[in-house]
C-alpha cells in the first residue's frame, strides 16, 4: 500500500523533529549525572518518565537541594507534566480505542509528538505524525541520554566545567519558545522573581513550587490574557518546537 503525499510529509516532519530533539538527550544525561544520579537512574528516567521538562526539573531540584528536596523535586516534575494531560485529551480522538494502543500513546505523549500531529490536517497524517515522532524521539532520546550520562561520568566536577550554568541555559531553551504572548512573559518574570526572593527563606525546592502559584492565579483570572475569539481556541496551546527537547 502506498501512502498519500500528506501522510509521507507527516512522516518526514516527524523524523526531522524526532532526530533534532533526540540529540539533546546528551545534555540531560550529563546534567543528571552531575546532579548525583548514577547512569542507571538517569537512563531509567528517560525510559520510564520520558518527558524532558519534568526530567530536567527533577534533576535540577535534586542538584540544588539534595535528597532533602526530594518531595519538591517530585512535585516539580509532576506539575511540569500536567500539560501532558491536555496533550493527551487532544490526541485521544486521533489515537482511537484499544487499551494497548492508549497505554503506548500515553507514554509517547510529549510536546514534539503532539506538535507534529496537530500540524497535520487529515486524520491519517495526524496519526502517523504522532506515532513516528514519538517513536523516533523515544529511541533517540534514550540513546543520547546514555551517551550524555557516560560523558558526565568521565568529566566529573560540575562547577569547574560550568555544567550548572548549562542547566540554567537548558531550562531557558525549554522556556524560550513559549514566551510569545505578553501573559506568558509576565508569568515567567513574576515566577522567576518569586522563586529568587524565596530562596533565602524556604527550604531548597519549595521556592519553585510556590512560584508555580503565579501561574494558577494568572491562569484563573486570565489577567493580561487574550479575550474573545472562538470558543475552545485557547485549549491546551501547543508550542511549535524547533529542535527543543520535550
Amino acid at each position: 500500500m502506498s501512502e498519500t503525499p500528506p501522510t509521507r510529509a507527516a512522516a518526514r516532519a516527524a523524523v526531522a523533529v524526532g532526530v533534532a530533539t533526540a540529540a539533546y538527550g546528551i545534555s540531560f544525561g550529563a546534567l543528571a549525572v552531575a546532579a548525583g544520579l548514577d547512569v542507571w537512574q538517569t537512563c531509567f528516567l528517560s525510559l520510564v518518565m520520558f518527558t524532558g521538562g519534568s526530567q530536567f526539573a527533577l534533576v535540577g531540584v535534586l542538584a540544588a537541594g539534595g535528597l532533602a528536596a526530594g518531595p519538591s523535586a517530585v512535585a516539580s516534575a509532576a506539575l511540569l507534566g500536567s500539560r501532558n494531560v491536555f496533550y493527551a485529551l487532544r490526541m485521544s480522538p486521533v489515537i482511537g480505542s484499544g487499551w494497548f494502543t492508549r497505554v503506548a500513546a500515553a507514554h509517547l505523549t510529549i510536546d514534539e509528538s503532539v506538535a507534529v500531529s496537530t500540524a497535520q490536517s487529515a486524520p491519517r497524517p495526524q496519526r502517523v505524525g504522532f506515532w513516528v515522532t514519538g517513536l523516533v524521539v523515544f529511541v533517540g532520546w534514550n540513546i543520547t541520554t546514555l551517551i550524555g550520562a557516560l560523558i558526565g561520568n568521565l568529566i566529573g566536577d560540575v562547577s569547574a566545567y560550568g555544567l550548572d550554568a548549562g542547566a540554567a541555559a537548558a531550562f531557558l531553551g525549554l522556556l524560550w519558545p513559549r514566551l510569545k504572548q505578553l501573559q506568558a512573559q509576565a508569568v515567567a518574570v513574576a515566577a522567576g522573581v518569586v522563586a529568587a526572593l524565596l530562596t533565602p527563606v524556604l527550604a531548597p525546592g519549595l521556592p519553585v513550587i510556590v512560584a508555580a502559584g503565579v501561574a494558577v492565579v494568572v491562569g484563573l483570572t486570565n489577567w493580561l490574557g487574550p479575550h474573545g475569539g472562538p470558543a475552545g481556541s485557547e485549549t491546551a496551546e501547543i508550542t511549535p518546537i524547533e529542535g527543543m527537547p520535550s
Binding site: 506539575l79 500536567s82 506568558a184 515566577a191
Partner: peptide, 8 residues
C-alpha cells in the same frame, strides 16, 4: 496548565 509550565 500552559502557564504552569512557563512559571515552573
Amino acid at each position: 496548565a500552559n502557564l504552569l509550565t512557563i512559571a515552573l
